[in-house]
Design a protein around this nucleic acid. Sequence first.
DNA 1: GCGACAG
DNA 2: ATCTTGTCGC
Length: 230
Amino acid sequence: MSDGIRHSWDLTPREAIALQRELAGRVVLRALPRNFRILGASDIGYVKAGERLAAVMLTFSWPDLLPLEAVHAICPVRFPYIPGLLSFREIPPLIEAFEQLKKRPDVLLCDGQGIAHPRKFGLAAHLGLYLGLPTIGCAKKRLCGIHASPPNKKGCSVPLYLDREAVGSVYCSRDNVKPIFVSPGHLCDQKSAERLVARCLGRYRIPEPLRQAHLLATKLRLEISISSNG
DNA sequence: GCGACAG
DNA sequence: ATCTTGTCGC
């Protein structure tokens, strides 16, 4: 902490945007490895009116999705929430949590956009590039881009366009529910991203690994606010 | 100038 | 994200 290094998440919004433009050029889009062993899933919970962030990182065997590890990290908030700059806010605790895993996952599911982002550098892309790991962005809402309405049938999707380029897909993860937004982060492509998400779907709208991460983050948030105050 | 806007 | 109760639908 006293090494004088200015971390990339301590930038001004203007500097952060410039950095995104630069780093976006390093993102690699390609098919996911054919056979891998471990899938990761991460989520963030906000503690105490947004004073601190609780990151949860889970790993599962692939393709069985049996739980392997569960770790977490708590960090103070260092960056405000600004649409398009979410990664600068959430990456610190995510990295801390990731470093506590005994085994690195081969692919990581993230709660946010991948390249379906104004500068094609959403949370999943940023985290994947930082960790040198294949990542997939899976968001509950649209950040940017245009799309047709997908059929309300599980497994159906329509492309999400930014300018004239497909940057993700609007995916129906359950019959008659609002679609989710799937886009590759890093070392992944759209087809691989969609196929992986499809294999993670259970009874709910959110892919099971991400849903589990969210449940744990919520539980953690409660425990923390109880023990640190009250 | 008027909306839109991941978590 | 978080703050919150009941309520409509498969």
